[in-house]
Simulated assay, not measured.
Amino acid sequence: MSKTQSITIPDEVVMSKMYIIRNQKIMLDEDLAELYGVETRRLNEQVRRNKDRFPEDFMFQLDETEFSDLKSQNATSSWGGRRKLPNAFTEHGVLMLSSVLNSKQAIKVNIQIMRIYTRIREMLLKHKDIFIKVEQFEKQMMKQDEKIELLFNYLSKFIEKDEQPRTRIGFRTEKEE
C-alpha cells in the first residue's frame, strides 16, 4: 500500500468508539488517535498547543469515576497504563480536531465521523414519534400496574377474611345446638 493510499475504517468500528458521558456523545483521545493513525500523546499535544479551540463543551477530561465506569462497561483493562485521565471530545471537539491535525488520514476519518454523527441525529429525529409513543405506552403501563397491584391487595384482603371461621346464622337443628 502506498503512502498516498489511506486506510478505510468500517463505520461500525468508528461507532463502537462513541460513548455517552455527561449526556453527550463523546469519543476518547486514544480512540481518535488510533483512528487518525497518530500517537495519543501527539494528539493531546496538538490540543494543548491550540487550547483556545477546545472549550469545555468541545472537550473535557474524564474524572476517576467516569473513567472507571467506562472501563468496567467495556470489560477491558487496556487503558490501565495511562498516567493521565483521558480527554473526551464531543462532536464539536472532534470537528475542531480536523483543524489541528493535518494528515490526510485524520481529515478523511474526521469526515467519516461527522457523517456518522449526522446519520445518528437524523435517525433519532426520524424515529422521534416512535420514542414518544413508547414513552406514552410506558406511562400507561405504569398506571395499569398500579391498578393491578390495588386489585391484588383487595383480593388478598378477601382471602384473609375467608380463612377466619364464620359464625353461622339462620335455623339450627337440635343436633347442631
Score class of each variant (00 low, 15 high):
Met1Ile: 04
Lys3Ser: 15
Lys3His: 14
Gln5Leu: 06
Gln5Asp: 11
Gln5Thr: 11
Gln5Tyr: 03
Ser6Asn: 15
Ile7Tyr: 07
Ile9Glu: 03
Ile9Tyr: 00
Met18Cys: 05
Met18Ala: 00
Tyr19Val: 03
Ile21Trp: 09
Gln24Pro: 04
Lys25Cys: 06
Lys25Glu: 15
Ile26Tyr: 02
Met27Trp: 05
Met27Ile: 10
Leu28Ala: 04
Ala33Gly: 03
Leu35Ala: 04
Tyr36Ile: 05
Glu39Phe: 14
Thr40Phe: 04
Thr40Leu: 04
Asn44Val: 05
Glu45Leu: 12
Glu45Gly: 01
Gln46Arg: 13
Gln46Met: 10
Gln46Trp: 08
Val47Thr: 11
Arg48Tyr: 07
Arg48Phe: 07
Arg49Asp: 00
Arg49Met: 10
Asn50Glu: 03
Asp52Ala: 10
Arg53Leu: 14
Pro55Tyr: 13
Asp57Gln: 12
Met59Thr: 15
Phe60Met: 09
Gln61Cys: 11
Leu62Val: 02
Glu64Cys: 06
Phe67Arg: 08
Ser68Val: 01
Asp69Phe: 11
Leu70Trp: 06
Lys71Gly: 03
Lys71Ser: 05
Gln73Lys: 07
Thr76Pro: 01
Ser77Met: 06
Gly81Pro: 00
Arg82Gln: 08
Lys84Ser: 12
Asn87His: 13
Asn87Arg: 12
Ala88Lys: 04
Phe89His: 01
Thr90Lys: 07
His92Cys: 06
Gly93Asn: 02
Gly93Tyr: 03
Val94Ala: 01
Leu95Met: 12
Met96Asp: 03
Val100Asn: 00
Asn102Glu: 09
Ser103Met: 02
Ile107Tyr: 02
Lys108Thr: 10
Ile111Asp: 06
Met114Gly: 09
Ile116Val: 04
Thr118Met: 12
Arg119Ile: 00
Arg119Ala: 12
Ile120Tyr: 11
Glu122Lys: 14
Leu125Trp: 07
Lys126Val: 05
His127Arg: 09
His127Lys: 11
Lys128Gln: 11
Asp129Arg: 15
Glu138Trp: 00
Lys139Gly: 15
Gln140Met: 11
Met141Lys: 12
Met141Thr: 11
Gln144Asp: 12
Asp145Ile: 07
Ile148Tyr: 09
Ile148Leu: 14
Leu150Trp: 07
Leu151Gly: 06
Tyr154Cys: 10
Leu155Pro: 00
Phe158Lys: 09
Glu160Gly: 00
Glu160Tyr: 08
Glu163Gly: 00
Arg166Ala: 14
Ile169Leu: 08
Phe171Val: 08
Arg172Met: 06
Glu174Cys: 14
Glu176Trp: 10
Glu176Thr: 09
